[in-house]
């Protein structure tokens, strides 16, 4: 990125978005911690407390998800996650090579297109695959005994095994994601610019006039 580029402070992450992000981060951290205690990996809170607080955090997480879904659809922000092949290769190349040569980011970050093609893919995967699988397997985990109790034969699940193993696998995947996510956070314009943006909402973006004026440019073709 040449120093001659113009930068402009842009309000890119709205209040709810930031709240949602940090709340989600907090909950995932706590769920992972308490979850692996339930899994038998270590002892810290005590099994009973771990279960109790894991369940509370899970309920909070699901409420948060409902609000987040509502927000994404009412604001149209869901479109940020429409996957695209455009620039995907460039983006991969950037992370594999360009970044070491200080090449510019191949995808311009704007209010209407905050995510690069790789982010779109990964976050979409989280939203439509990993999180739903975790919520669903978690709900089965929570409620699997009740069908038997109320004798609804069609809902009978005879083993916790599948739900538990899937839930565990998802937890491993989420932790791996967080590791990568925390690292990639440092690959913005400066090491801390992404973090600052997610805290304050403001980020210095390349002043790329036309994009702001004509939003339709960002509606990717072929979607």
């Amino acid at each position: 990125m040449s120093d001659s580029t113009n930068f402009k402070k842009v309000y890119i992450y709205k209040a709810f978005e930031r709240f949602w992000h940090w709340m989600q981060a907090l909950l995932i951290f706590f769920l992972a911690f308490s979850g692996f205690e339930i899994h038998g990996s270590f002892t810290f809170l005590g099994f009973e407390n771990a279960v109790k607080y894991h369940n509370i955090a899970a309920v909070m997480f699901m409420i948060l998800i409902v609000f987040a879904i509502f927000w994404h659809f009412t604001t149209g922000e869901w479109k940020q996650y429409i996957p695209t092949l455009q620039n995907l290769k460039l983006q991969v190349n950037f992370y594999l090579l360009g970044i070491f040569k200080d090449s510019p980011h191949p995808t311009k970050k704007t209010v209407l297109s905050k995510l690069n093609p790789l982010q779109r893919l990964v976050y979409l995967g989280l939203k439509v695959l990993v999180i739903p699988v975790m919520v669903f397997s978690g709900l089965l985990y929570m409620f699997y005994r009740y069908p038997q109790q109320f004798v609804i034969e069609s809902l009978n699940i005879d083993s916790l095994w599948v739900a538990a193993v899937v839930h565990t696998l998802g937890a491993f995947a989420l932790i791996a994601f967080i590791v990568a996510h925390l690292y990639l956070m440092t690959t913005g314009h400066t090491v801390t610019s992404n973090l600052k943006a997610m805290i304050t909402g403001y980020e210095e973006l390349e002043d790329d006039e036309p994009r702001e004026v004509t939003p339709s440019v960002n509606e990717e073709k072929g979607n």
Binding site: A164, V165, I175
Partner: peptide, 16 residues
């Protein structure tokens, strides 16, 4: 049966 805290799938543990 599967009991939380006791049981795990070793393949999933290794993969994870």
């Amino acid at each position: 049966f599967y009991m939380p805290g006791r049981d795990y799938n070793s393949l999933v543990e290794t993969a994870g």
